[in-house]
Design a protein around this nucleic acid. Sequence first.
DNA 1: TTGTACGCGTTATCAG
DNA 2: CTGATAACGCGTACAA
Lengths: 342, 342
Amino acid sequence: MTSSVRQARPPQPTLEMVADVAGVSRATVSRVVNGSTRVSPEIVVAVTAAIDELNYVPNRAARSLASRQTQALALVVPEDMTRFFGDPYFAAVVQGLTRRLDQSDFTLNLLVASSDPRHKTLRYLRSGNVDGALIISHHTGDDFVAELETTMPVVFGGRPANADNLEAYFVDVDNAAAAELGTQRLVDIGRRRIGTVTGSADMPAGIDRLTGFQRALERAGIPTDAVEHGDFTAQGGAAATRRLLERRPDLDGLFVASDLMATGALAVLRERGRSVPGDVAVVGFDDSPAATSGPVPLTTVSQPSEEMGFAMADILLRRLSGEENVPHRTIMPTRLVLRESA
Amino acid sequence: MTSSVRQARPPQPTLEMVADVAGVSRATVSRVVNGSTRVSPEIVVAVTAAIDELNYVPNRAARSLASRQTQALALVVPEDMTRFFGDPYFAAVVQGLTRRLDQSDFTLNLLVASSDPRHKTLRYLRSGNVDGALIISHHTGDDFVAELETTMPVVFGGRPANADNLEAYFVDVDNAAAAELGTQRLVDIGRRRIGTVTGSADMPAGIDRLTGFQRALERAGIPTDAVEHGDFTAQGGAAATRRLLERRPDLDGLFVASDLMATGALAVLRERGRSVPGDVAVVGFDDSPAATSGPVPLTTVSQPSEEMGFAMADILLRRLSGEENVPHRTIMPTRLVLRESA
DNA sequence: TTGTACGCGTTATCAG
DNA sequence: CTGATAACGCGTACAA
C-alpha cells in the first residue's frame, strides 16, 4: 500500500469535533470562536477548554468560503526581485505595512509581479485569495491594475501612473515640491552648475521629482538641461552620473532622485576624483538607510516611508471595514535632512 | 440603505455559471478546468469558450476546501524585516525559490516571523493556508518549527538548529569546509595574525564557519583566539571588527562569515587607515552582491544561494507530490572566488 | 441563549 | 464520456 505523505498526517480538528468535546452544537462553538457576546459564560469556558485540548485552529478555506472574506491582503510590487530587495525604501514601506497589519487579523501576501508572469499574479488575486491589494512602484505600462480595481479595493503607494484615474486611493508625498526643496539647497549653498539623476521616467515619482528640480533651477535662473535618467537602482545612478560628468565636466551640484541611486553617484564621483561636497555637492531623496551607509553621509529629502506603508494598510483596512469617507489621497510631509554631502 | 463596499462589487463567475453557458454540468466544467483527458474535444471547446466569455477564475477557498490542498507554500523567516531586506543573501534565495515555483502552480506566502508574533505565524500556518513550509535563517531558540513539522512538510535552508532533528529535510553547504577553504587562502598568502568575525552564535551557519576557521589555523599552527562575534549584519560586522582591532592591533588577515558583515569590516578598516589587502587581507562568505558593491572587491567563499533556494522549493514540491526517497540532506558545492581583498 | 439547517464553490465518487 | 450528488469546514438566518 502506497500511502501518500498527506494521508499519513493527523487530521486537523474541526469545529464539529470541538462541539462534541464541549457538548454543544457547532454553531455555539463558532460563536465563541468569533467572539460573539451572546453566549453564556459557563459555555464559553467549556468551549475554550475543548479548543485548547484539541489545539483547534479554524480552517481558513472553509471560513473564507462561508464568510466571503479572506482576512488577507496582497502587496503587489511590479518589479523584479532584485530591485525590490535592493532598495531600502521598500523595506521601510513593508515594515510600516506589517506594523499596521499586526494590529489586525489580516495577513500579507507578497507578490513580486515580475517573478511570476503578470497574468499569474492577476489570476491569484482574482481567485479570491485576498480581500484587497496594496500596489507600490507602479509604472505607466502596468495597466493590469486597472482590472484589479474592478475586482477589489486597491490602495496605491505613490500616485498611480494612469492620469485618468481619479477614483484611485493612494498615499504619497508631494514629489515635485520635495524635489524642489532638495534642489533649492544646492542653490542656497552657492552651486550654479547643477545637474540631476532622475528616477524612472515611467513612474510618477520619477517624473514629478524632475519637475521639482526644474522649478527650483528656473526660479534661480539656472539652465535645467543637465539631466540624465536613472532607474532607481545604484547601478543606474552610477551610469547616469558618468554620462552627466561626461557632458558637464564642471558640474558642482547634483540632485539624485533616490538615496540608493545616490550611493552609485557617490562611488562614481569618488572614482573620478571629485570630492563631496567640495567639488560636487550632492542631495539625495528618501532618507533611507542608504543615505548613511556610505563614506559620506547624504544630505537628503526625507519622506516618511515607514509611515506611508502604515497609512496604506490603514486606509485599505478602513475601506474593507466599510468605513465611508475614507480620503482618496493622503499626502505625507517631507523635509530636508542636512548631513555632509551638501 | 448602507450598502457595504463588498456587496457593491460584481460577483465572480462560478463553475455553475460557466456550466450553464456551456450547456453542460458543473462536473464537466471542473474536468476541463483541471485538464482531465476524459472529455470530448467539442465539449472542451465549448467550455473553454464559456470560461473566456465569463472571465472565469476558480475560487481557491472552495477548491482548497474540497481538495484539501492549497497550492501555496510559506517561506518562514524568523528574523526582523530589517535583516531580511538588508542581506542580499535572502534576496538570492527568494529568487531561486520563485524561479522554481514559477514552473509550478504553487504560490509563495512570505512570513517574516518577527513582524507578527510567533504564535500568529503558527496560527496562520496551521489554518490550512499552505501545503508546506520553507524555513530559512533558523535560530536555536526557534523551537516553534518543531510543532510545524508535525503539521506539514517542511524544508530548511541551512541545517536546522535542533541537533536531535535527524528527520529534517534541508539544503545547505558544508559550512565548516567552506570556511576552512576561505581561511586557508589567508594562510596561503602568508598571513599569520589572522582573526575572524563570526556569524550568529545561535545559528549552525555561524557555528560551523567558526569551526572551519579554527581548523585551518590549527593546521597551520596559528593561534585561533582572535574571534569576535557578529550577527550577520553590516553594523554587527563593523562592531566586531572594531573590537578585534582593539585586541589585535597587528591583525593582518580577516575571515568574515558573510559578505554583508565584510562590508562593515571594510568600512572600519578604511576608517582606521588600514589598507586592504595591503595591511589586512579580507575574505568574505556568500559571494552576494555585497561582495562587489564596495570600494574593494571581496575575495570570498561562494555558495550558490540562488540554486539553494531553487533546490529547497524543488524538494518540498517533490515531497508534496508524494515522491518517495526524496533526499533528506542536499549539500551544495562552494568555491573560493579570488578578487582583490585577499 | 442555543440549536437546526442551509449555503458558500469545488472536487470526487458513483451511476449511467 | 457525462451528470447527479455527497462531502469539505464554517457562518448565519431562523427557529426554538
